[in-house]
Simulated assay, not measured.
Amino acid sequence: MDAAELLGAALAQGGQRARDTVSLQVADVTDTGTVNLVLPDGELLLDVPCAVGYRDRQAGDWVAVRLSAKPVVLWKVGADPAQTEAERVQDIAEEAALDAQQVRAATYGTGVPSGTGWQQASAVYVRKVSGKLELHFVVPSVDDPSPDAPPTRAPKPVSISPTDSGSWRGGRPDSYADYPMQGDWTGGGNRRGAWFYGTAIADACAGKTVSSMTVAFTRRRGSGVNAKRPLHLYLHSYTSPPSGQLSLGDGPEDLLRLSVGGTGTATLPAAWRTALATGAARGLAIYATGSTDYMAVSGGRVTISFSS
Score class of each variant (00 low, 15 high):
Ala4Arg: 06
Leu6Tyr: 04
Leu11Asn: 00
Ala12Cys: 02
Gln13Pro: 02
Gln16Met: 12
Ala18Ile: 11
Arg19Met: 09
Thr21Met: 04
Val22Gly: 01
Val22Glu: 00
Val22Asp: 02
Val26Glu: 03
Leu39His: 03
Gly42Trp: 10
Leu44Asn: 00
Leu45Pro: 09
Val48Tyr: 00
Pro49Cys: 02
Ala51Met: 00
Arg55Ala: 12
Arg57Gly: 01
Asp61Thr: 05
Trp62Gly: 02
Trp62His: 04
Val63Ile: 03
Val65Gln: 00
Val65His: 01
Val65Ser: 04
Arg66Leu: 12
Arg66Pro: 11
Ser68Asp: 15
Ser68Gln: 14
Pro71Phe: 15
Asp80Cys: 07
Glu85Phe: 11
Arg88Met: 14
Ile92Asp: 13
Glu94Asn: 12
Glu95Trp: 06
Ala97Lys: 09
Gln101Ala: 13
Gln102Lys: 10
Tyr108Leu: 10
Gly109Met: 13
Thr110Leu: 14
Thr110Gln: 12
Val112Leu: 15
Pro113Tyr: 10
Gly115Val: 11
Thr116Pro: 08
Trp118Asn: 08
Ala121Gly: 14
Ser122Pro: 04
Ala123Leu: 08
Ala123Glu: 14
Val124Glu: 07
Glu134Gln: 15
Leu135Ile: 15
Val138Ile: 12
Val139Asn: 00
Ser141Gln: 14
Ser141Met: 09
Asp144Arg: 02
Pro145Gln: 09
Asp148Arg: 00
Asp148Ile: 08
Thr152Asp: 11
Thr152Arg: 07
Ala154Asp: 00
Ala154Leu: 01
Pro155Gln: 04
Lys156Leu: 10
Pro157His: 09
Ser159Ala: 13
Pro162Ser: 10
Pro162Gln: 06
Thr163Gln: 14
Arg169Ile: 02
Arg169Met: 04
Pro173Gln: 00
Tyr176Glu: 13
Asp178Trp: 10
Tyr179Pro: 03
Tyr179Cys: 06
Asp184Ile: 02
Thr186Asp: 15
Gly187Arg: 01
Gly188Glu: 05
Gly189Cys: 07
Gly189Lys: 02
Arg192Tyr: 10
Gly193Leu: 00
Trp195Cys: 01
Tyr197His: 10
Ala200Gly: 05
Ala204Asn: 02
Ser211Pro: 08
Met213Phe: 08
Met213Gly: 08
Thr214Met: 11
Val215Met: 08
Arg221Leu: 04
Ser223His: 12
Gly224Ile: 02
Gly224Asp: 08
Asn226Phe: 05
Leu231Asp: 01
Tyr234Asn: 13
Leu235Asp: 01
His236Arg: 06
Tyr238Leu: 08
Tyr238Ala: 10
Pro241Asp: 08
Ser243Tyr: 05
Gln245Tyr: 05
Leu246Ser: 10
Leu248Tyr: 06
Leu248Lys: 01
Asp250Phe: 00
Gly251Tyr: 05
Glu253Pro: 07
Asp254Gly: 00
Arg257Ile: 08
Ser259Cys: 15
Gly261Thr: 13
Gly262Asp: 14
Gly262Arg: 09
Thr263Ile: 03
Gly264His: 12
Pro269Arg: 09
Ala271Leu: 12
Leu276Ile: 11
Ala277Trp: 10
Thr278Cys: 03
Ala281Gly: 13
Ala281Arg: 15
Ala281Thr: 12
Gly283Cys: 11
Ala285Cys: 05
Asp293Pro: 07
Tyr294Pro: 07
Met295Ala: 13
Gly300Cys: 04
Thr303Tyr: 00
Ser307Pro: 09
Ser308Pro: 05
Ser308Ile: 06
